[in-house]
Amino acid sequence: MSVHPQPPGRRGTVERPYSALNLRLALAVFGLVTSTVFAVLAGRAGWSVAGWILAVMALIAAIDIVVVQRRRRARRKIQGDGHSLFE
């Protein structure tokens, strides 16, 4: 699997990317934290099905964090050292 700063064939350039990776990262972290907390709470309350569903959602959020970080790293290699909150 090759990693590019953005998928091939999509609109956008290195200077004007099409996706907001930092926003996606923040939402994924929020989803990971909330899903994990609610999975633990659901498990303690005896709602095992809801707890497992939330645990799977937390796993998906963790995978998304890894994917976003790989894209951000690929973009940083192309663009250079410039740090920006709004990549």
Rank of each mutant, 00 (worst) to 15 (best):
T13L: 01
Q79P: 00
L25S: 03
G43L: 10
S2K: 11
G12C: 01
N22P: 01
A50C: 13
L54F: 10
E87W: 05
A26F: 02
Q69I: 14
V14N: 05
G51L: 04
P5T: 07
A28I: 02
G43K: 04
A74K: 09
I63D: 11
V3D: 03
S35N: 15
T34E: 06
I63Q: 11
N22C: 03
R75W: 12
V14W: 01
T36A: 13
P7A: 14
W47K: 07
S19Y: 04
G80Q: 01
L59N: 08
G82A: 15
R16I: 05
H4K: 05
Q6N: 06
V68Q: 00
R72L: 15
P5H: 03
T36L: 11
M57I: 03
V56M: 14
V68P: 00
Y18M: 04
T36S: 15
I65P: 01
R75T: 04
S35V: 03
A42D: 10
V3R: 05
L23R: 07
T34D: 03
V33A: 09
A62V: 03
L23Y: 11
P17D: 03
L27R: 13
G82H: 14
D64P: 00
G80H: 00
A61K: 08
L32F: 14
G46R: 04
A26M: 07
I60T: 14
R76P: 00
G82Y: 13
W47M: 09
V29Y: 06
V66Y: 09
R44T: 10
H83Y: 14
L21T: 01
V29Q: 10
R16E: 13
V49K: 09
A58K: 04
R44H: 09
L27D: 11
A20P: 02
V37D: 07
V29A: 09
Y18R: 09
R44M: 13
Q6V: 01
L54C: 06
L59Q: 07
W47Q: 13
L25T: 05
W47H: 14
Q69L: 15
A55V: 13
S2F: 08
R11L: 13
A50W: 08
V3G: 01
H83F: 14
T13P: 00
H4V: 02
M1T: 13
R71C: 12
S35M: 09
R73G: 02
T36R: 09
A20F: 10
G51T: 05
W47P: 00
R75I: 02
L25E: 09
R70Q: 15
Q79W: 00
L27H: 12
R70F: 10
A42M: 07
P5D: 06
D64T: 12
L23S: 11
V33C: 03
R70I: 08
G31Y: 01
T13Y: 00
Q79H: 03
W47I: 05
E15S: 06
G46W: 03
G9N: 04
F38R: 12
L21N: 04
F30R: 08
I65Q: 02
R16V: 11
I65T: 10
A74V: 06
A39T: 08
A20L: 07
S19M: 03
Y18I: 02
D64I: 02
A20I: 02
L21C: 07
A28P: 01
R24V: 04
R75N: 04
G51Q: 04
G43I: 05
L21V: 02
A50G: 14
G9E: 04
G82P: 04
I78A: 15
I53W: 05
S19G: 01
H4P: 00
I78C: 11
P17I: 03
A39Q: 04
G9V: 08
D81R: 08
I53L: 13
D81Q: 10
